[in-house]
């Protein structure tokens, strides 16, 4: 059983580590894994546990703070904010649809059964509707 509050990165991935941290954390924030006002680990603690440079984690936190997910006031660490979801632009919607299509195609091309892709998407949709 994987702890839902465990962040996982892959150093062999072509994606930069800071992006992986941003994506992983964002997914948890969207899924409301953290309550408003809850504290995340300090930059140093997370960097130590992941075995990466603290600047990498600091950059990830900064990106999430710019998106409105975190409050990074000095001395308080990273605190989860109650982020109001912005009104999506048509551009953002188009980008999401394109990305999803590309991702699905890639998964199928790599041999993931279509039924499994559909199952994952349905599960994700259910999870989203609950939050």
């Amino acid at each position: 059983m994987v702890n839902p509050r465990t962040l996982r990165i892959d150093l062999a991935s072509p994606r930069p580590v800071y992006e992986q941290i941003v994506s992983g954390l964002r997914a948890m924030l969207v899924a409301r894994e953290f309550a408003r006002g809850e504290q995340l680990p300090t930059v140093r603690q997370l960097a130590i546990d992941l075995g990466v440079h603290h600047n990498t984690v600091a950059e990830s936190y900064r990106v999430l703070a710019e998106e409105g997910w975190l409050d990074l006031r000095r001395g308080r660490g990273a605190v989860v904010l109650d982020r109001r979801e912005p009104k999506p632009s048509s551009k953002a919607k188009q980008r999401f649809a394109r990305n999803l299509e590309e991702l699905t195609a890639k998964a199928v091309a790599e041999g993931v059964p279509r039924s499994a892709v559909a199952e994952h998407m349905a599960a994700l949709a259910t999870k989203l509707s609950r939050t």
């Binding site: 509050r5 465990t6 962040l7 996982r8 150093l11 954390l25 953290f34 680990p41 546990d49 992941l50």
Partner: peptide, 11 residues
């Protein structure tokens, strides 16, 4: 192993 994991619960 290139996979790294970390708990997000402050200790």
């Amino acid at each position: 192993p290139t996979i790294r994991e970390a708990s997000l619960t402050p200790r």
